[in-house]
Design a protein around this nucleic acid. Structure first.
Length: 425
DNA sequence: TCTGGGGTCCTAGGACCC
DNA sequence: TCTGGGGTCCTAGGACCC
């Protein structure tokens, strides 16, 4: 039996812990850059504000309903997440942390009665809530996909906080009320395609023939359908596979046309990328830069939106100056003037652990090693005195920067910064 | 007119997730 | 004026090999 535990309105709940007076008020959290809504308390959901809504579109609603707005505070959310996961791990050794606010668990008590299972779910839920102040919901089922669905039901349909699915075919009424898009693995494209075949509800999905599904939706689709019918195709992923790609990207607050401005941005992205690589003790042998033209106002002469350039590094590396050079080289190859760029970024592929660095036969590695030492010292200084204390001059930010994070409404980092501890008067 | 068959590796792009 | 950021997996198609 699988279980999925999911924190309710996670970011909004985190903000409420340290501001108890907000418990009865509508709260929403904005994305990086304060661009759009990424988390909402139930009160905000009831006002009909969807996730992904741009902030500027709802400024009036915010004022009218006195909605409390926060910028994303990932230090706080990451720390609260670790606490929740730790508590869940105490309840069940078979735990897979799936995202910042969700974890799968596996239990052996399949044969337990529904009543016992429900009791167990309520107990775990109460335990986590008491220890952290974060409300959670739990769904139980024989497959991960069904556990996800059970969790959704416990939140949105029955609103009991715990729901169990032994066999989806036994819950016909419920399955007829749930839209296919609630199923894990069905996004907007699959929803549209299913709709073309007249399939709108989970119940209709359950009637589909597997052969036909395989033909239309390939192997992922087949796996999804089997899981939905109660045949397990996915297991817990015990060791987090080391990541394969790393991205640093940012949307500009206004359109950018000039190469000079992009070079400044890419020097900063490459700096972030280097820090991130070194933090995870990884190096990359290749990277690509990408540029996106503003989709809401495409002035690109040929209408194209996406431009990217792949580049190989002479030596696999995590050294900031080498990354900046490579990024600039790639940038100069895919930049062309006259386009209004809105977002861009840099992506590292095929990461490898830094201790297996393969030095190029013909490259003189001394300079590379020197730089590597310099990077280690730079990281130490920045860790102690704050990010950006030292760095490459290329990454200096001119006055009118358009990519630095905007966070007008960030709450204090209550749990991870001594200077921002909660004070009680 | 007729022009093999089967691999592997790589990249781009589409789909999904949070 | 203002529309996020960071991931994974899969497939199709081209280059190249024997």
């Amino acid at each position: 039996m699988f279980a999925l535990a999911d924190c309710n309105n996670f970011y909004a709940s985190c903000e409420r812990i340290f501001r108890p007076e907000l418990r009865s008020r509508p709260v929403l959290v904005l994305s990086n850059n304060d661009g759009c809504v990424v988390a909402r308390s139930n009160e905000v959901k009831q006002l009909g504000i969807a996730n992904g809504t741009p902030h500027w579109q709802i400024k009036e609603l915010i004022a009218k309903h006195k909605i409390v707005v926060f910028s994303s505070n990932y230090q706080l959310y990451g720390d609260m997440s670790a606490r929740v996961m730790d508590l869940l791990g105490q309840q069940c050794a078979d735990l897979e942390v799936y995202s910042i606010d969700e974890a799968f668990m596996r239990f052996d008590f399949y044969r337990q009665t529904q009543q016992k299972l429900e009791q167990e779910g309520k107990r775990i839920k109460g335990f986590v809530e008491q220890c952290t102040g974060i409300p959670i919901s739990i769904g139980f089922a024989p497959t991960k996909t069904l556990a996800k669905l059970a969790n959704h039901i416990s939140k949105k349909v029955t609103a009991t906080g715990v729901h169990i699915i032994y066999d989806p075919f036994e819950q016909e009424d419920l399955m007829k009320r749930i839209d296919v898009s609630e199923v894990w693995g069905i996004g907007s494209a699959y929803k549209r395609k299913l709709s073309d075949y007249g399939i709108e509800t989970v119940w209709q999905l359950l009637q589909c023939r597997e052969q036909w599904f395989y033909k239309e939706f390939t192997i992922q689709g087949l796996r999804l359908l089997k899981e939905l019918k109660g045949i397990p195709c996915m297991d817990l992923e015990d060791s987090p596979t080391s990541r394969q790609n790393m991205v640093v990207s940012r949307a500009f607050r206004r359109d950018v046309y000039a190469l000079e401005e992009l070079r400044e941005a890419f020097a900063n992205f490459a700096t972030r990328l280097g820090e991130k690589l070194r933090r995870y003790r990884q190096i990359t042998s290749s990277l690509s830069v990408f540029l996106l033209v503003n989709p809401y106002n495409n002035k690109s002469p040929d209408g194209r939106r996406y431009f990217s350039q792949f580049i190989q590094l002479p030596i696999a590396s995590s050294n900031t100056p080498e990354l900046i050079n490579a990024a600039w080289k790639a940038l100069s190859l895919c930049f062309s003037s006259g386009r209004n760029y809105k977002k861009c970024g840099i992506m590292a592929y095929g990461l490898q652990p830094e201790d297996v660095v393969q030095l190029s036969l013909f490259e003189e590695p001394e300079q590379h090693l020197k730089t590597r030492k310099l990077m280690a010292i730079t990281d130490k200084i920045n860790a102690r005195f704050g990010n950006g204390t030292v760095g490459c001059a290329a990454a200096l930010i001119s006055k009118d920067n358009k990519w630095q994070r905007l966070e007008q409404f960030r709450s204090p980092r209550y749990t991870t910064s001594w200077l921002e501890l909660l004070r009680i008067k």
